[in-house]
Amino acid sequence: MRNGDKSIQGICFGEVLWDNLPTGKKLGGAPLNVAYHLNKLGVVTRMLTRIGRDENGSELLSACEQLGIPTTLFQFDDSLPTSTVEVTIDAERNVQYEIVYPVAWDRIAVDTVVLEEVEVIDFLVYGSLACRDEISFQSLLLLLEKARFRVMDVNLRAPYFGPEKIHSLLKYADFVKMNAEELHIISDWNGATATSTDQQRVDLIMERFAIQEVIVTYGADGAVYHFKKDNISYHFPALKVQVEDTIGSGDSFLAAFLAKRFQMQDGVQLEEVLEFAATLSGFVTQSSGACPAYSPEDINRFHWLNPIFRDSNLKVKQ
């Protein structure tokens, strides 16, 4: 898709929260992380969420405004608190989360104004975690009926997921991002076997739910982009960086990919889109937290210092 004379705009639906890390409190939530990076990359993206009328909510609202995340679609809850998550990081730098329930974003509401907003934007990004409560889930289904282009960022967090809701969300998706573990869980629900390859698992999901584009992330092993229209699967490596933590690296990859995809001009190749996504993801991985400060010059310099070895592989599916 090309930008043309019109600026690209999106909405991210779902959770916003404070990650209570061993090093201190950090702003978080997968859809918020995606919104942060999209806005940094020049794609105006509002956050549709709900926070409590409490100190954490006031601090979160101020933090989002300071980060350049539009807050005009924030909702405020008089009874439920702003979300917090207890985060632990093990010796291998893997992250574990304890997510409090219920919180304000479990009660996201929609009205005529919000539905009209969703009808005119270019894309809606949504995840599965925000659907753990029926109120937010039903609100999202109303939005998905109106959205032009629907991006599902799978975010399976035990015990807040099951096949029924995930399948309902996948039926609406035009574009899906998931990690390898999530790919295996969802494809197993749909008939994959122990001998099924990842390619077969992706094909199974894309065919059953009529999904056009899928990205599967593999951490240090990069990502694979699957495009149904051209019948291709494209592997691109991850940057080799010193890992600070892995919080938000997948979110930044998705944001960078979407920004390039929607701002795409004639002559921009898929390799450029994926390379940009891998570069931003690598920068976030070697930074602390999901929303580190950066400028375009910072990313350009990081790319220059950390060139990607182009062992990418394009496969035309038979």
Rank of each mutant, 00 (worst) to 15 (best):
Ser168Arg: 15
Thr112Pro: 01
Ser168Glu: 15
Val114Tyr: 02
Glu181Asn: 07
Lys240His: 06
Ala192Arg: 07
Leu142Tyr: 12
Glu244Pro: 00
Gln199Lys: 13
Ile108Thr: 01
Cys131Asn: 07
Asn179Ile: 04
Leu169Gly: 04
Lys177Asn: 10
Gly10Arg: 03
Asp198Glu: 06
Leu115Gly: 00
Ala255Glu: 09
Val34Thr: 09
Glu98Phe: 09
Phe175Asn: 02
Glu272Pro: 07
Glu244Val: 14
Leu280Trp: 06
Thr72Leu: 12
Glu207Leu: 11
Tyr172Met: 10
Val176Pro: 02
Pro102Thr: 10
Ile247Arg: 03
Ala104Leu: 04
Met264Pro: 02
Val202Trp: 05
Asn94Gln: 14
His37Ala: 08
Glu182Ser: 05
Ala293His: 12
Tyr126Phe: 12
Lys229Tyr: 08
Asp54Val: 07
Val34Asn: 04
Ile11Val: 15
Leu61Met: 14
Glu86Asn: 09
Asp245Pro: 03
Cys12Lys: 05
Ala259Phe: 06
Thr279Ile: 13
Leu38Lys: 02
Lys317Gly: 01
Phe76Cys: 07
Asn306Val: 04
Tyr172Lys: 09
Met178Thr: 02
Gln96Arg: 13
Asn306Gly: 01
Ala277Phe: 10
Ala194Lys: 14
Tyr36Leu: 08
Gly42Trp: 10
Ala91Gly: 06
Asn56Gly: 10
Thr195Arg: 08
Glu65Arg: 15
Asn306Tyr: 08
Lys317Thr: 11
Val34Ile: 13
Arg261Val: 06
Leu73Arg: 06
Cys12Arg: 08
Asn20Met: 14
Leu38Tyr: 07
Arg208Trp: 04
Glu134Arg: 14
Val95His: 01
Asn190Lys: 05
Phe309Ser: 03
Ala192Ser: 15
Gln9Ile: 11
His235Tyr: 12
Asp174Ala: 02
Gly4Glu: 14
Val243Lys: 11
Phe137Leu: 12
Val100Ala: 13
Met1Trp: 09
Cys291Gly: 00
Val243Cys: 13
Ile135Arg: 11
Val176Thr: 07
Tyr234Val: 09
Lys240Val: 14
Trp18Ser: 01
Gly42Phe: 11
Ser58Ala: 13
Ile121Asp: 03
Ala158Arg: 14
Ala290Ile: 06
Gly127Cys: 06
Thr49Ile: 10
Asp111Cys: 01
His226Lys: 02
Leu170Phe: 08
Tyr97Ala: 04
Phe209Leu: 05
Asp266Ala: 12
Val316His: 12
Asp77Glu: 10
Ile185Cys: 03
His37Ile: 10
Thr246Pro: 01
Lys260Ala: 11
Ala223Cys: 12
Gln212Trp: 00
Pro292Gly: 04
Asn20Leu: 15
Ala109Leu: 13
Ala194Ile: 13
Thr72Ala: 08
Leu124Val: 11
Asp203Ser: 12
Ala238Pro: 11
Phe123Gly: 00
Pro237Val: 04
Asn155Ala: 03
Val284Trp: 02
Asp174Gln: 07
Ile166Pro: 00
Val85Gln: 06
Gly250Ala: 11
Val241Tyr: 10
Ile89Pro: 01
Met47Tyr: 06
Glu59Val: 05
Gly222Pro: 08
Ser249Met: 12
Leu67Cys: 10
Gly127Met: 04
Leu67Ser: 12
Thr279Ser: 11
Arg148Gly: 06
Met152Asp: 00
Ala223Asp: 05
Arg301Glu: 14
Met206Ala: 08
Leu204Met: 14
Arg150Ala: 00
Gln269Met: 12
Ser139Pro: 02
Leu144Val: 07
